[in-house]
Design a protein around this nucleic acid. Structure first.
Length: 95
DNA sequence: CGTGTGACTGGGC
DNA sequence: GGCCCAGCCACAC
């Protein structure tokens, strides 16, 4: 793992306000570290346990299947706009 | 070295 | 809107 990149991912994720989200692809863009969405996903799965990982979702507003249950709870708690189990990206995407 | 595998995406239908 | 698919690329075997 590129530990320096991991740290940058962590810092950015911690800046996402409650109730808002960023897509894996957007995180990759903002960090411009030469890695793509899949790598961001890998980082989140390995080093994102102690982060508000539910604020980083797929471009279509959903999450990988195993995480949907937990994510739903957090989205509800934070008042994240959700419909049919998916975050409404038009409204929740953090600029 | 060759292959398979994703916390992914955008494009085509 | 949904489904499929190729492209993606670091990683583990």
């Amino acid at each position: 793992m590129d530990e320096e990149y991991v740290e940058r991912v962590r810092e950015l994720v911690l800046r996402i306000p409650a109730g808002r989200v960023l897509s894996y692809g957007r995180v990759a863009e903002l960090l411009a570290g030469g890695y793509g969405p899949r790598y961001v996903g890998r980082v989140m799965s390995i080093e994102g346990q102690d982060l508000p990982w539910w604020r980083v979702v797929r471009a279509d507003g959903a999450m990988a299947p195993p995480l949907m249950g937990e994510a739903q709870v957090h989205w509800m708690e934070e008042g994240t706009p959700v419909r049919d189990g998916r975050v409404l990206m038009r409204e929740a995407l953090w600029t």
